[in-house]
Design a protein around this nucleic acid. Sequence first.
DNA 1: ATTTGGGTTATTTTT
DNA 2: TAACCCAAAT
Length: 668
Amino acid sequence: MNLNDKQLEAVETINGPLLILAGAGAGKTKTIVERVVNIIKNGIEPENILCVTFTNKAAKEMLSRIIERLREENLIENGINYFINKNIPTIKTFHSLGLQILKENGQSLGFNKNLSILDTNDTLQIIKEILNSLSIDTKLYEPSKIRNIISKEKSSSNTPDDYSKKIANYTMEIVEKAWRLYDKELKKRVAVDFDDLIIKTIELLRSNHSVKEFYRKKFKYIHIDEYQDTNNSQYELIKELINDEKNICVVGDIDQNIYSWRGANLQNMLNFEKDFPGGKVVLLEENYRSTQNILNLANNSIEKNKVRFPKNLFTNKETGEPIEICPAFDEKKEAENIINNIKILLKNENINLKDIAILFRTNFQSRILEEYFLRANIPYKLLGTKFFDRKEIKDIMSYLRFSKNRENITDLKRILEFPKRGFGKTSLLKIFSNDIKDISYSLQEKLKETQNLLDKIAKKIENNEDKLSEIIMFTIKESEIEEELMNGSDEDRERLENIRELVSIAKKFDNLNANIAFDTFIEEASLRSDQDDDENNIEGVKLMTIHSAKGLEFDYTFIVGLEQDLFPHINIGNKKRTAEEEEEERRLFYVAITRAKKKLFLSYAEARTIYGERKINIPSEFLEDVNTLDESAVSYNQTFYGENNDFINKSKNKKSFSFFDEIDFEDF
DNA sequence: ATTTGGGTTATTTTT
DNA sequence: TAACCCAAAT
């Protein structure tokens, strides 16, 4: 299978703890896939293997690659539908694994299989309501901050009781009170938040010995991908699942830990050898993605960090094209310059638009880029907008979900408020506290109507006569959402388009019986973030934040906005960036660099308008890393830059010219 | 019940 | 700048 020595070593070490330190592009997924295949070759049943990933996409990819390889090795019947075959490895995200365990065994904690998952928005609403009920000034004590504290505590596996012991100020008192009420509120709704999917699973395993033994026996071989991104509670969960054989393999790269602000704890990775003594460590340094020029920059840059395991990426590939530095006068010129460079790429070589990506530190930077892509008529796709977070999609999902789980008031609230039926604040409160007699007669009628609709939806799901997509269509029509949006503004019609997109997503499940399709669909919608399963299918230049580019690769990669305070990003308010946070910014730069396969462009603007204010910036300190490279490894794009760095004068002297009429983009 | 206006506040977001 | 939220006004 064309493995290098190190990869082979990892693949062949199947018993005991194994730590794989895998640099960017070092064939990490391939190594896990081959290791799983190897374990099965050694006579272990596939169902005894667990792989945990961080995204559904990664899980999906890993599963399909494993199945493909098992077929090649004749370890699985050809043509068999592996979704029906139970004897396959479990490959899931932490959250979907938790959900599965809770649905199947969580009765003792008050859960059932209609358990709802609340996203960050839903939970924020609940926190707001709680703070209001406590008459707390939400200006002084921001709901989002309170929620974040609770979430952070939860993901560190702390309970309200733990927390109450360390209360030192009034804010903490509020947090504790709100937390307890919040937990009660979730319980009432038979709902969990993302953190609960992990910590409730731990609670279940600890309190229910037979369930724990079942899973410990089942999962004889455990793999954890992206181990550097695990938080404390995920680490605790692993510890509960692992049996005495300690067949655990974790894979990760400290240099790619970019989510510490969300609780990802580097210590888990740093302490692995201590936590699981007697294990083996394998270091994968050969990179199969980028040119040596790109890797040199990545190596030299990340070397400045203190918290890491030393590693040096190398490749057998050629030196490659030089890194191109692209200075610009301001963000407009930067955008223009990028368009120009893309046109040159398209003109000179046989390059596809989908092999080009533009990465930025913050979302607002996409705006100006979009403007210029639109103007230049170059197809592009902005990634990272969360389809299932859109209001109209959440509304539809609420109808579907609530038809089966009538405990979740968040859903009911959404339903009653959209489309508008005349329910206001007071009438909603009365409905929620079951004082239905107190609302007006006409509202009572409306409520009955809505109830009827929900019953009809539930019946359709149970009856199994209609397809899932048909049930959704039915919901849109009968709820009069379609009518309302059709006759609304342009924006409303766009919303309707999104809803139609939801219907077409649901069609994927139409071959399953409605009940199962429904559960799968709801689960997928609650646990996934991005609508695009496969960004390879996107025709057009890809625009995204560096965070969402993690794990992806592009032939031609632009990193834009390389200015001090923008990237590395300066913290908001008067909070100073800590040394650790500075290192995280550098890791982010490292992740960005290592996305590039063939050529890397580094772009910055000397002036930029942020929040309506024009600011003069100095080039990012990260650009200095380029000085560690040979002269031949770097080229300077002079288009918007003077010979003596005196680019302002230069651009004054330059006649303005247009880039937008050189190539006809109709073909793309 | 809905609209208007003023004040606030701007990272990253695998689930 | 612009989006968002809430209170006050209609």
